[in-house]
Design a protein around this nucleic acid. Sequence first.
DNA 1: CTGAAAGCGCTAACAG
DNA 2: CTGTTAGCGCTTTCAG
Lengths: 336, 336
Amino acid sequence: MGRASRSVTIYDVAKAAGVAPSTVSRTFSRPGRVNVETGDRIRAVAEELGYRTNPQARALSTTRTWMLAVVLADLTNPGFFDLVRGAEAAAAAADYTLMLAETQESAEREQEVLHRASAGVDGIVLTGSRMTSGAIRQVAKVCPVVVVNRDVPGVPSVITDIAHGIRAAAEHLRSGGHREVTYLAGPEASWPDGMRWRCLRAAGADLRMRIRRLGPFPPTVNGGVQAAAAWIDQKELRGTAVVAYNDLQAIGFIRAVLRAGGQVPGDVSVIGYDNTTAAELITPELTTVAAPMHSIGATAARHVLSVLSGSRNAPPGPMVLPTRLVVRGSTGPRNK
Amino acid sequence: MGRASRSVTIYDVAKAAGVAPSTVSRTFSRPGRVNVETGDRIRAVAEELGYRTNPQARALSTTRTWMLAVVLADLTNPGFFDLVRGAEAAAAAADYTLMLAETQESAEREQEVLHRASAGVDGIVLTGSRMTSGAIRQVAKVCPVVVVNRDVPGVPSVITDIAHGIRAAAEHLRSGGHREVTYLAGPEASWPDGMRWRCLRAAGADLRMRIRRLGPFPPTVNGGVQAAAAWIDQKELRGTAVVAYNDLQAIGFIRAVLRAGGQVPGDVSVIGYDNTTAAELITPELTTVAAPMHSIGATAARHVLSVLSGSRNAPPGPMVLPTRLVVRGSTGPRNK
DNA sequence: CTGAAAGCGCTAACAG
DNA sequence: CTGTTAGCGCTTTCAG
């Protein structure tokens, strides 16, 4: 016999209100199916007694926890804020509570987190995953999952139009006269990294630009600093423009170049990815590819919710949202 | 009768392993109290069947959810990252899972979030609260709470040595020859805001500096921009130094001043608060007061946990952690 | 519309 | 060490 600490239950309320427990239960779970007067009385008594419905007990009999998990690789990455808020908004609209978990870029931690979460939430929005597609499909079997920024066949996902954003970036550089651009690679297990690289290559081929790749480097300011060191080492091969895996990396790169006496965009034009708030903070301000993070989060959450409510029409492929290039001061015409 | 969707339960495992359900239960909740061979067999069978212990059911009989909530005002505020990670580390060490909730600076939302969370988690770390002390005490009655960055009599809390940090800031300015400093106020319901202001006043009185207050302004980059406009309007009264509510505000302030043609620190020295990563990103780099956010989070979480495990010795007052001034390029000698 | 009763999956006495 | 037996608080048939 579990010796739970006493709190106010439907039984207490029922006794105080002179009705059956099931009526109290209905009052809170199916308000329509109870006499409105009785309902009011019960609610009043409940309020007075300080009754709080116990979500665990409810979940036990309904298998619904009314919780959604958003699991992400790195809390620190500003790109996620709006995503989280979008998801939160969509969840709240459906009376769901959001739970956030960070995996710190570790596939192992991610596995563990997912394992835990999947038992306690109704659905999962998985972003920045470092796990294999197989492992993700596995999780998706146990608990509805929507993957963000990655295409995992068989699992619903929402991604952005990377090809378009990268193409716009390449065209922008091309129109500034740049013909040799270096891509600073992000984490190896990152799907968007591979995608950005391929798209940039394709755009380069199309626009007759030479594209080189450097890295991988961590997706952080410090990673960008490392990248700059490597880039500087390249001497004559380095070209006149750089597209970084993300804003943080681009910022680190710019700072390191400036510190080494270089000029941005004088010596090198730099483009980031994500359009985080930091992009506007630095000098020069960062040209970057922007995605509608809020919508992404909202779309993903809404889709998990729709699966939960039994919608059987799995979309044929990933849902794709648009990107756009935001031109600022870190890019300029070629200068040599 | 709740018609829960079938998943693997201890009964299934028990049958397959030829033991009583309670033995299976023990295997997972009290591994010590079961024959190691039997335990191994059960674990093997469980693994094979894909058994997952149901946290809701467990919580129902133990009243322990093994979840901690960290509720914070603004996800975007970089100061929180390390706090969250510290809390996460402490929680993980005790086998607890962290759940994050954002209140977006709204007391109403906060109330609501707390209401929800308190029913589903074992304890709460409450940071950046905008609620009244009374309301917080109320919540604390229902569910163990540790408040961060605020002193709420009767509720355990961890705060930082604001007086020390602000005093160091004032001394630093004073030694640069500054005698008139303006404090840019943060949100009105913010406890640290009031505290910083009072400490700065006190330090000013002590060091014979004149302290003025401007605001309140939002604790954001944009708030800093607004603050700069107000500050510039002050004309002769504005003094030669500014202490902002936080880094974001300080950054906005600096940018706006630079944009208006002013010099930093030439015309005005600026000090932030929090030592967020952005402080190092901007030009000039920001002088700021740093607090050990990771420790704060860890301390808070550990304390909630200790209350949960029945430690009855409530600390007499808030636990206070040290602060220090990080001097960078946004402050310099007085120049007029 | 309301009451009675049977679980949801797990834990915790209590015997043996 | 293991089996038996009551529940934890809530939902949901099934009667009335």
